[in-house]
Design a protein around this nucleic acid. Structure first.
Length: 671
DNA sequence: GCTCCTTGGGTTTTT
DNA sequence: CCCAAGGAGC
């Protein structure tokens, strides 16, 4: 788009006072946001007085680089980052004011949280097997609504609420004891601190003259409170988002934040960006048909296409998922042969489990692809293990990390030994790490455990000395890995050579991250501690050069992306909307919302620029049982004249299948 | 303390 | 059908 439309201009030019920008899919949101910041700077506000908060690191980086292009290097003075990064920044600077007098604290990721809750459940008598995630989501929800453990009241007839009531206080206690924050704390504790300490709030508040929030429909209650505190004085708050793309309610997002913005910030100006620069009219008509049927509360708006015409949206009905995948593979092959670039094509689906046949079909046709999602880099076991070693190194109080590595690689400290150590520590009011160091004074420790403790302590001491002597972190880590036998365990403990190679490669990749840190001139304990904290928020995989490949992703994973050609697979009742949203479960905190599934489907549809395929199968096996499948309600609701439907039965066999077939015939002839 | 096997459960997952 | 957690057995 070369020129600004009047709505875009209005959003950019608006100066003081609250502003809500309702940015429809493909309406030039990022452009408006960055130009708006540039305009604020142009009018004389120093870049350092701008605070912009996003949800992902990627979005923050994108914003930063585009702002830098507009205003030059001074853009770096602006605070552009994720909510959690901002929270971390405040809490790090104010560590002493949140009760961590040594200035250190750890950050728990989800698997750490799971570990803590499991441990707590073990101590509750008569504890049966619980779904830990269901408990954690209740705790998270309570935290974000500032409900303290003492004030927690479970819903009636909610057995998970009852167990949460028992676990929640212990969970909070445990984190306190470990000097740890979870992700929710990074927001909530800041709000708590700001509410308690007017002087601290004032210090941070006076720093920022303008506050901007991206993807506002995804904020939760705590984030709203943080935004309120930061903006309530100058009221220069601009939020950007789209209630029609609210797809994270299940993670605690409250769409009412964007729906009620004008009540929260009276006098707000509202700008609706409804011109869509991305999709053809043919695609947008389908998108509009889907979202206009929404039964939920929404800001009334309708996307208007700037690209007229276009190919009709294709509905593809396949006999089964393999045929569906073959069709997608054949069609992509054809598109590539016609000159489409692989990077302009995406296949999206509701859940990761659906990717498998598609991945296979594409690989058979030698179509280059990348699967977005899956296990993230920093979630990989070997990376987490090494990080845990380093965390214990710089922050021995981090009991969660210590428990992770205390007997990995195996050094004779089993459950009983660990319990003895923990009891010893508890009775003497010392940390678990101190107990490990004084293992010889712990009663009832078997000889192998004693030796294990000594070995671990000595490896940590060596690393510690190297770190304090100013050796680079990568070198310290490399030697530590060797000394504790992590490297050897990866080689011997993997099920196959290729697995071992991959895990080893992950380890090396992490060492390279450390090297980059070293090259920036960072040395010693505190710098390493800082790096580890920042890395806990950096959950995205190291974005390797993506290259020219087809993208496979979940619907959630495609938010904010766009492609010339999009295939949506599995457009079936029970998949989208997902079966679980059609029937409440005991583990659910809130009733699931079919309307969120509609918005999710809408997000998927609006990713496509030129061509869109909505695919489904007539039969699909679920948990081994073959089932007849009905088309998604979101599909049947679309007026038929907007769609072009075709049936695919069996596809021509691929070369590989043909060869397999010939081989089978030959084998049969021989016998 | 470690290994193997049974059992149960399986959506999405910005930080 | 496939994975992961916890229990039984070595």
């Amino acid at each position: 788009m070369t020129r600004l439309n009047p709505d875009q201009k209005a959003a950019i030019e608006h100066d003081k006072g609250p502003l809500l920008v309702l940015a429809g899919a493909g309406s030039g949101k990022t452009m408006v946001v960055t130009h708006r910041m540039a305009r604020i700077i142009e009018r004389g506000t120093p870049p350092g007085a701008i605070l912009a908060m996003t949800f992902t690191n990627k979005a923050a980086e994108e914003m930063a680089s585009r702002l830098e292009k507009l205003v030059g290097p001074s853009a770096r003075e602006a605070t552009l980052g994720t909510f959690h990064a901002f929270g971390l920044r405040v809490l790090s600077a104010e560590a002493k004011n949140v009760g961590f007098h040594d200035g250190h604290f750890a950050i728990l990721d989800q698997s750490d949280q799971v570990g803590v809750v499991r441990e707590i459940l073990r101590t509750i008598r008569g504890s049966r097997k619980w779904d830990v995630w269901a408990i954690l989501s209740r705790i998270s929800k309570a935290k974000n609504e500032f409900i303290a453990p003492d004030d927690y009241v479970p819903r009636r007839f909610d057995e998970y609420g009852d167990i949460t009531e028992l676990v929640y206080p212990k969970y909070v206690e445990a984190l306190r004891a470990f000097h740890a924050f979870d992700f929710d704390d990074l927001i909530c504790e800041v709000v708590r601190l700001f509410r308690k300490r007017a002087d601290v709030l004032e210090r941070w508040r006076s720093r920022y003259w303008y506050v901007l929030v991206d993807e506002y429909q995804d904020t939760n209650h705590a984030q709203l409170e943080l935004v309120r505190l930061m903006a309530e004085e100058h009221r220069n708050i601009c939020v950007v988002g789209d209630d029609d793309q609210s797809i994270y309610a299940w993670r605690g997002a409250d769409v009412r934040n964007i729906l009620d913005f004008e009540q929260h910030f009276p006098g707000a100006k509202v700008v609706k960006l409804q011109s869509n620069y991305r999709s053809t009219d043919a695609i947008l008509s389908v998108a509009n048909a889907v979202i206009q049927k929404s039964a939920g509360r929404r800001h009334e708006k309708r996307l208007v296409a700037t690209r007229p015409g276009g190919d009709k949206v294709q509905v593809v009905v396949a006999a089964n998922p393999e045929v569906e995948a073959s069709f997608i593979g054949d069609e992509i092959r054809r598109l590539l042969d016609e000159g489409r670039r692989a990077r302009d094509v995406a296949v999206v689906y509701r859940s990761n489990a659906l990717s498998e046949p598609i991945e296979t079909a594409l690989r058979q046709r030698e179509i280059p692809l990348r699967v977005v999602g899956g296990t993230q880099f920093y979630e990989r076991k070997e990376v987490k293990d090494l990080m845990a070693y380093l965390r214990v190194l710089v922050h021995p109080r981090d009991e969660i990390s210590l428990r992770r590595i205390i007997n990995y690689p195996a050094r004779g400290i089993g459950q009983t030994a660990l319990d003895r150590l923990a009891t010893h520590a508890l009775a003497r009011d010392m940390t678990l790490w101190q107990a490990v160091r004084q293992a010889s004074t712990v009663s009832g420790l078997p000889q192998p455990a004693l030796a294990g403790c000594a070995a671990l302590a000595s490896a940590m001491d060596h690393a510690s000395q190297r770190l304090d002597a100013g050796q680079p972190a990568a070198e310290v880590a490399r030697l530590l890995v060797r000394e504790v036998g992590l490297e050897a365990d990866i080689a011997s403990g993997s099920t196959s050579d290729s697995v071992a190679a991959r895990r080893h490669e992950n380890l090396l990749a992490f060492l390279r991250v450390l090297e980059r840190h070293d090259q920036a001139g960072k040395r010693g304990r505190d710098d390493l501690a800082d790096l580890l904290r920042v890395l806990s928020l950096n959950t995205e995989a190291e974005e390797k050069d993506e290259g020219n490949v087809v993208t496979l992703a979940t619907m959630h994973g495609t938010k904010g992306l766009e492609f010339e050609v999009v295939f949506v697979a599995g457009v079936e009742e029970g998949i989208i909307p997902h079966a679980r949203t059609l029937e409440a479960r005991v583990t659910d905190v809130d009733p699931q919302d079919v309307e969120e599934e509609r918005r999710l489907f809408y997000v998927a549809v609006t990713r496509a620029k030129a061509r869109l395929y909505l695919c489904r199968s007539r039969h699909r096996s679920l948990r081994g049982r073959p089932m007849a499948r009905a088309p998604s309600r979101f599909l049947t609701e679309v007026p038929a004249d907007l769609l072009e439907t075709r049936d695919v039965r069996e596809s021509a066999p691929s070369t590989g299948e043909m060869l397999d077939g010939i081989a089978a015939v030959l084998a049969a002839l021989e016998s």
